[in-house]
Write a protein that binds this DNA or RNA. Sequence first.
DNA 1: GCCAACGTTGGC
DNA 2: GCCAACGTTGGC
Length: 155
Amino acid sequence: MKYWLMKSEPGTYSIDDLRLKPGGTDHWDGVRNYQARNFMRDEMKPGDRVLFYHSGKKPAVVGLATVTSEGYPDHTAWDPKSDHPDPKSSPENPIWYMVDIRFEEKYPSPILLSELRTQPGLKGMLLLKRGMRLSVQPVTKKEYDLIVKMAKPAS
DNA sequence: GCCAACGTTGGC
DNA sequence: GCCAACGTTGGC
């Protein structure tokens, strides 16, 4: 099983948007970056865990999701009416891929990026690297477990 | 709103 | 194939 972090601008697509879909499941369309595409097309598998991340005003991990499909062609790429069309992509020759994910949990209070930065255990996390803009990125199990633990109220 | 970092495009 | 110009991302 692998672990991932997926970024979204909440004004565009938030964790609540995912939560409110039928079955809490939706396809993650619109990724137009080759590295992120390769992760979805080649490496993501059903059952993989996802940290749902909001970028923007209050950058934070806001909850959890699960991958529910293999990578498959992103049909919005060849739909000229979609938000991110790419005329170079076609059903015969898809360039862009996506996966389906299912909502699992929304944290009562988001784990802010600034809090992640203070965690010694997260030194070296990809997300925290300067200039890191990848919208789909791998997370180690250690990092994932630590972040999940941060979300739990102290007991 | 600013700007650094990055990816892509296109002229040569 | 190089690289300058440009557009976008995303933290601050």
